[in-house]
Design a protein around this nucleic acid. Sequence first.
DNA 1: CGGTAATTTGACGGCCGTCAAAATAGGTGG
DNA 2: CCACCTATTTTGACGGCCGTCAAATTACCG
Lengths: 256, 256
Amino acid sequence: MHAMLDRDSCLVRNFKYYCALDETEAELLSALEKTPQTVSNAQMLWEENHPAETICVLSEGWAYSYRSMDDGTRQILNIFLPGDLIGLSDFSPRRHLTSVAMLTEGVICRFPLKNLTDIFATSPRLTTVLFSLAGHQQAIMAERLVNMGRRTAREKVAHFICEMHLRLSRTCPNTTHRFNLPLSQQVLADVLGLSAVHISRTFSELREEGLLYRERNRIEIPDLKAFYEVANFSDIYLSDSINELLKCSEKDHHLR
Amino acid sequence: MHAMLDRDSCLVRNFKYYCALDETEAELLSALEKTPQTVSNAQMLWEENHPAETICVLSEGWAYSYRSMDDGTRQILNIFLPGDLIGLSDFSPRRHLTSVAMLTEGVICRFPLKNLTDIFATSPRLTTVLFSLAGHQQAIMAERLVNMGRRTAREKVAHFICEMHLRLSRTCPNTTHRFNLPLSQQVLADVLGLSAVHISRTFSELREEGLLYRERNRIEIPDLKAFYEVANFSDIYLSDSINELLKCSEKDHHLR
DNA sequence: CGGTAATTTGACGGCCGTCAAAATAGGTGG
DNA sequence: CCACCTATTTTGACGGCCGTCAAATTACCG
């Protein structure tokens, strides 16, 4: 049993975090991850405004999506971790609204958008989970919008680190108060709408107060509780109750 | 035929903008709009962190969603127009992640979340459309993130006005270079992460340059093209091609 | 060990926030 | 139709956060 779990695709493992899957469902999902392709650091997966025939699962490594501005700057919209679906929101415009590039080397699996409508037509349960994933991503973006609009640089940095810490600790159970964050200060600046110089100053400030240590890509948070307070971080927006949802729809199913 | 269209619910009309609906589908959708309820200006529809048993369709009037900050300020996340679904992203956490309040008086129709899973189980086509709507909302938020992160106050204001103008011109075909925007400068400030004072200054600046006139809630844009340029506005992110999507899934259906 | 990328530091300036007061508009009741 | 009250908008003065530019320092990688 455990051996089988280990052989699950990354996406299936991620979904199983949300709900139990039967064999048909697991198979449908695995279909999305049949064409692994290794990609190098900084490689682009696609560019904004190009037609979106396929989107992809990120099986290994980190990636990010962004929009380029006329003046040469850019705004990063999302950071993706292993097991994430990239490009879900390009479904309707059938056009990539953002560019996507790797932050590390990794493995991705492209699949055509039609696979999604196949899932809609075949498995209401998986559809529910997909819909939840989309809502989850939107919640993250909403929280980042709050971050950008109403917080200082100090709070922005702290809040973002908290978000990544929490997301990581779900995927990798061995994440503690030390973890790896493969984002340069320039990347952090482009995520948070700040300048790289000011990111540096902010890290210095947090370091001097003993709240956060960062060297290269290594992060250490001595006192997580204190750090959450600096960030005004609340983890509610990253919570989920898909299992309750599925129970509801199943109970309903039995009645028919 | 035309008489029937006039009797359609607001949501059905909105969906028909995207794709033709057969009778079963129209009925499923109408089920979401069976319990109209008039609401007054500034009335709250729900508050953040409360359990989300129902979400709603906005049938008439304008609304907005926001998050309150500890220091008493707030960040507005979304502006809703007639025909919009409010609360879609609360589906998975089963908890309202934002507060929602009215900007004008209006009519809303609450419905339980279970209706969504019913749709998933019954109509893959409607599911596709729902998924597209969710993606559409996410695209709007992504664009606003870009706006907040990498643009000046002047550009932020102009861009937001452009977005509203475009969204309105789809719902109300009689929207021209003059239209109604029932948002106070304080509300605009809370949308754009600025202070109300600076919003006022920015409007003055745009007025003096002859680019935008605003009195009370009335907006006039003498030269739309010139104004788009101030905003660096591109309308790609608000485009849709759901019909192609549906054709794909139908073609597929016939093959079985 | 040389070359490039990433980070740090300092000086300076500008955009935008805050505070406060004045002006304007809208709404209500007499 | 006017008097009054409140919400909204405008204007000015001032300050701070953060951006820009540039140079120095450090880390990384072959």
